[in-house]
Amino acid sequence: MQTIGLIGGMSWHSTEAYYRRINEQVAARRGGHASAPIVLQSLDFEQVRDCQLREDWTGAGELLAEAARRCEDGGADLVAICTNLMHKVFPAVEAAVSVPAVHIADAVAAVAQRSGWTKLGLLGASWVMEESWYRDRLRTHHIEAVIPGPSDRAEIDRVIFEEITQGRFLDPSRERYVATMQDLADWGADAVALACTEIGLLVAPDQSPLPTIDSATAHADLLVELALAPAGVAQAEPASG
């Protein structure tokens, strides 16, 4: 099995979910005492959050690119950013390493395509919902994204950074997310992409009015699939279209 490089800590709550999911899937597929060889660079989210608030995406890209290089230096055969928002600097990370970098939106798209979903509601940080880079990546897989209205976007973003990335999972916030998901269903979404890796820790699948794609789970599963491929053939999920 090839070694997976994880750039985590943004937040550590979802990085923990990645670690658990990857190892559960490897154990299920290989049996016995099998677990995944992983190189983890867990960043100080305070530093990354400071870059976000100042919109210093160049600085953020340098932080994550250096973490990616450390993953490769530690033996990683492929690398991944364990957060949706920081894929805004994915090009810097991809350029920093010679091994494949696996994009989280490609993993979300793969789940949608297997299920026949072509229109996804998109919940995440404001930059994920409002800017085009994430939706553009989905569009390369012929998947349309629909986003909530302005007040809902503001509340979705507030809950992410004031609550769930700090390990606080509150019932009123869960109810607001579910109501927003219902709006997305009314607007024709086939499913909801939980494009913040902590949202799946707040809203369980059976609480959503629509099928959900937990981006952390989808990303972890794609990493396992690639890592279990024969040595030398792992590659990022190619964009289509």
Rank of each mutant, 00 (worst) to 15 (best):
A154E: 15
Q166Y: 10
A125V: 12
L120W: 05
D206L: 07
T212G: 01
S215D: 09
M129F: 07
G232F: 13
G167R: 04
G188D: 01
Y177A: 10
A189N: 01
A110T: 07
T197F: 01
R174D: 00
Q113E: 11
A193T: 12
A112H: 02
C196W: 11
S126G: 12
S115A: 15
A105G: 08
R176N: 10
L194A: 08
R153G: 05
C196E: 04
H142I: 07
S151K: 12
G188Y: 03
E198C: 08
S215T: 15
W127Y: 13
Q207L: 13
R158W: 06
V128Q: 06
L138I: 08
L222G: 11
K119M: 06
D221C: 03
D171V: 15
D157Y: 00
F161P: 09
G200C: 09
G167H: 10
A145D: 13
R176W: 08
Q182K: 03
R137V: 08
A189L: 00
Q166P: 02
V146D: 11
I213K: 13
E130V: 09
Q182F: 01
L226G: 06
A204I: 12
T197A: 10
A227E: 00
R137N: 14
F169R: 01
A193L: 10
C196L: 08
T165C: 15
Y134N: 11
A154H: 14
A154W: 14
A231R: 14
I164V: 15
F169L: 13
T180A: 08
G121Q: 05
S208F: 10
I160N: 06
I156G: 05
D157Q: 01
D186P: 11
D183P: 01
H141F: 15
P205R: 03
H142N: 13
Y177F: 15
I104W: 11
S173C: 03
E198K: 06
A154F: 10
Y134Q: 09
H141K: 13
A112Q: 07
Y134H: 15
F169I: 03
P209V: 10
W127G: 09
I164F: 14
G149Q: 15
T217W: 12
G167P: 01
D214G: 02
